[in-house]
Simulated assay, not measured.
Amino acid sequence: MTLQELKPFVTLIIEQPEKPVNERLLEICALLEEKIPYYNWVGFYFKNGEKNELKLGPYVGAPTDHTIIPFGKGICGQVAISNQNFVVPDVSAQDNYIACSITVKSEIVVPIFVQNENIGQIDIDSNTIDPFTDMDERFLEFVCKKVASIL
Rank of each mutant, 00 (worst) to 15 (best):
L3H: 13
F9R: 09
I14D: 04
P17E: 06
P17K: 10
K19R: 15
K19G: 05
N22H: 04
E23V: 11
E27L: 15
A30V: 06
E33A: 15
I36F: 12
V42C: 02
G43C: 03
F44K: 07
F44W: 07
F46Y: 06
F46E: 03
N48V: 02
N48F: 01
G49D: 06
G49Y: 04
N52H: 07
E53D: 13
P58K: 04
V60L: 03
V60G: 00
A62K: 13
P63H: 05
I68S: 13
P70Y: 01
P70M: 01
G72E: 07
G72M: 06
G74Y: 15
C76L: 09
V79Q: 03
I81M: 05
I81Y: 00
S82D: 10
F86I: 03
V87R: 12
V91M: 12
S92G: 12
D95K: 11
Y97F: 12
S101K: 14
I102V: 08
S106Q: 07
E107W: 07
E107F: 05
I108L: 06
I108G: 05
V109Q: 02
V109W: 09
V110K: 02
V114M: 01
V114L: 01
N118S: 12
I119T: 02
I119D: 04
I122F: 02
I124F: 06
N127Q: 05
N127E: 15
D134M: 11
L140M: 11
E141Q: 11
E141D: 09
C144F: 01
K145P: 00
K146G: 02
S149E: 08
